[in-house]
Amino acid sequence: MRLAVLDVGSNSAHLQIVEARSHKPPLPVFRLKAPTLLAESVTPDGALTPDGVERVVRAVACTVEAYRQHSAKDLIPLATATIRDATNNAEIRRRVREATGVELRSLSGEDEARVTFLAVRRWLAGNAGGEGLLLLDIGGMSMEIASGDGGEHPDLAVSLPIGAGLLTRRFLPEHPAARNAVERVRRHVRAAVRPVAAELAGHPRPDRVIGTSKTFKQLAGLTGEGDHLSRRALRRWVPRLADMSPLQRANLPGVAAARARQLLAGAVTAVTVMEALDLRTLDVCPWALREGLLLRRYRELRG
């Protein structure tokens, strides 16, 4: 069964088409990204600027046209936090619907955490089917954290407003970044994650800690640890990233120019959360929200 998911986020509209198969990983068929670049397109009152809205409409139109050229049974069109939480989200959805015929949907941050947890469980498959799992996912506007001792449904799923794009816009207006600006990000993240750390303290320590999202993938690439990321190596990179301009960061291996400006905030968030939760290392998973949505939809269609 061929299924498609369209994830419209702060950096791009990402279309992924797969051949879903029983008891096997989805087989990739087609992938396309169209830029949205919304990190600097949010006004102080939380609305997307007219230029930002126009980029969203163009990106969705481009990816939907590509979807219609493939014989997929179903399209899951998801608008993540940047659009979901925009004060003019109704206008954005209307513009997209009129231009493409597609109605963007949204999940709550907690539901995104649950769906991503499902994806990671399936990715781990038999290697960690009943192990305690802690999931961390840093996005543009929010960070999702989920934890569970077994099965595909987490016991804890939360979403925190500490996404890399949001923190960059609020606390890091200049790059290279001053030390006191970096420290403000660290204090803000520490305060945001403190209630989660307190709640997790009452849970068994996880057997596996997994980071998903482009941010964790890029940070693991920077530290040279491949599919792993250690707090110690990441801590060394924070001052180096702070001393760089976005252009210099974009020249680092594996760093996309569209994400270079917010990479510092992503690094500070990752290391601060790892410190708060007493995590020395984590594994990076290539599956995240899109894969979780596809897996869940396949199960629904199969009955």
Score class of each variant (00 low, 15 high):
residue 296 R to W: 08
residue 106 S to D: 02
residue 46 G to C: 04
residue 178 A to H: 13
residue 287 W to G: 01
residue 121 R to L: 12
residue 204 P to E: 10
residue 49 T to M: 10
residue 184 R to D: 12
residue 237 W to F: 13
residue 216 F to V: 04
residue 42 V to S: 02
residue 46 G to L: 06
residue 27 L to A: 15
residue 251 N to D: 14
residue 185 V to I: 04
residue 258 A to G: 02
residue 88 N to E: 09
residue 57 V to S: 08
residue 264 L to F: 07
residue 75 L to D: 03
residue 149 D to Y: 06
residue 202 G to M: 12
residue 184 R to F: 01
residue 137 D to G: 05
residue 13 A to N: 00
residue 273 V to C: 04
residue 78 L to K: 06
residue 198 A to D: 15
residue 167 L to N: 01
residue 285 C to G: 01
residue 113 A to I: 08
residue 263 L to V: 03
residue 267 A to Q: 03
residue 214 K to H: 13
residue 17 I to G: 03
residue 10 S to N: 05
residue 250 A to N: 02
residue 81 A to N: 10
residue 27 L to T: 12
residue 94 R to F: 08
residue 216 F to Q: 05
residue 7 D to Q: 11
residue 152 E to H: 14
residue 19 E to F: 11
residue 198 A to P: 09
residue 244 M to K: 00
residue 161 P to D: 03
residue 230 S to A: 11
residue 72 A to L: 12
residue 296 R to A: 14
residue 140 G to T: 03
residue 295 L to C: 07
residue 9 G to D: 02
residue 48 L to V: 09
residue 55 R to H: 06
residue 265 A to G: 06
residue 231 R to Q: 15
residue 117 F to V: 00
residue 71 S to M: 13
residue 218 Q to L: 05
residue 28 P to R: 08
residue 155 D to N: 03
residue 238 V to A: 11
residue 11 N to M: 05
residue 37 L to T: 11
residue 106 S to K: 04
residue 105 R to M: 15
residue 275 E to I: 09
residue 79 A to C: 06
residue 272 T to Y: 02
residue 73 K to E: 15
residue 191 A to F: 03
residue 128 A to K: 08
residue 19 E to L: 15
residue 32 L to W: 09
residue 207 D to R: 14
residue 296 R to S: 12
residue 262 Q to C: 11
residue 8 V to R: 00
residue 27 L to H: 14
residue 179 R to Q: 13
residue 238 V to P: 11
residue 150 G to Q: 13
residue 298 Y to V: 01
